[in-house]
């Protein structure tokens, strides 16, 4: 029984670990999409950031340098997206797609040019990564039956970026719903004309939103390559940006429900990893591929209005053209 409990806690711990990049990207997408800019480039920005972090951490030996570089690169790609979508009123889906494809090609091309390791960055030493932080008394607390392991396995032993992601959720909620900036941001995604009439720059607000999205994707990428992993591997985002987008839709463009969706999708991932190749009586081998596909299926079902209803920001995807 105690063993099963530990197993369960370990799965929850894994859930949190795989959910972190989803959470950060979902919050990034939340800022962008709440301002009216569709962001399917979460995937590409995260991939570029993961590469930048892995590269800089390997070259400088400093995790902080990796994180800063990741954020800068990701923001740069956000600005390209912003330039195309806001300044040039281009198609937001096409722009996002271009960034994703560009990132896939660019990371491998640059990776081979710099390290000549087939697109990977070298394995990082402990100092070049964000290592896990053991909270005080974790070992001692672990001895307490039942509740002790919760503290030891789930709460303790995470790196700083995990805490960053959780704070980001709270901060996103606060900024979006409790500040003047957040009010304007939401307004610009619902009715940009109103914001413009009030004398506030629609473009300015949207640019700020995509920059914030860039910062958050940057942290997500750094988490993948220099905190959770020990170096960049090609295509290491593996569709997580799209799952985050799905989670954002699932959470109806709200921070806490989006967090819940990320954790749910993370949990499916963690369970699938745990059940890989496990024989279960009666059913036999569990088809883990089918568990991994659930986030996508559930999102489609949700979007179709069979469970609840997804209501996107009203002005999403529409470039703002001033009336003349």
């Amino acid at each position: 029984m105690a063993d099963l409990w530990i197993q369960f806690l370990l799965t929850l711990d894994a859930t949190l670990r795989v959910a972190i990049p989803l959470i950060l990207c979902a919050m990034a997408g939340l800022f962008s999409e709440r301002s009216g800019i569709i962001d399917i480039s979460l995937e590409g920005k995260m991939l570029m950031a993961a590469f930048a972090a892995g590269t800089l951490a390997a070259l400088t030996g400093s995790a902080i340098a990796g994180l800063v570089g990741a954020i800068l690169v990701s923001v740069m790609f956000s600005l390209i997206h912003g330039f195309a979508c806001i300044t040039h009123k281009g198609n937001q889906v096409i722009s996002g797609l271009a960034i994703n494809i560009l990132a896939s090609g660019l990371t491998v091309t640059l990776g081979i040019a710099i390290f000549a390791k087939g697109g990977q960055t070298p394995m990082l030493s402990r100092e070049a990564r964000f290592s896990s932080i053991e909270l005080p008394f974790a070992e001692a607390a672990g001895a307490i039956p039942f509740i002790g392991p919760i503290y030891k396995e789930i709460i303790s032993g995470h790196n700083i970026l995990v805490w960053c992601a959780l704070i980001a959720v709270w901060l996103t909620g606060f900024v979006i719903f409790k500040t003047a900036f957040g009010l304007r941001l939401r307004a610009v995604g619902e009715k940009p004309e109103a914001v413009d009439t009030a004398g506030i720059s629609v473009s300015g607000l949207r640019y700020r939103a995509v920059i914030i999205a860039g910062i958050l994707c940057g942290i997500a990428g750094a988490y993948l390559s220099i905190a959770h992993g020990a170096g960049f591997v090609r295509e290491m985002t593996a569709g997580k940006g799209y799952i985050a987008l799905a989670a954002l839709i699932f959470g109806n463009w709200r921070p806490v429900p989006a967090l819940a969706a990320c954790l749910m999708f993370g949990f499916l991932d963690a369970v699938a990893a745990r059940l890989q190749g496990v024989e279960v009586p009666v059913i036999g081998q569990i088809p883990t591929d089918l568990i991994l596909v659930l986030p996508y299926v559930l999102t489609v079902v949700l979007l179709a209005g069979f469970i609840g209803k997804a209501t996107p920001p009203r002005a999403i995807g529409r470039p703002y053209v001033k009336e003349r």
Binding site: G90, I94, I99
Partner: peptide, 8 residues
Amino acid sequence: ILFSGALA
């Protein structure tokens, strides 16, 4: 895609 699509 970027130049001929989004920045057409």
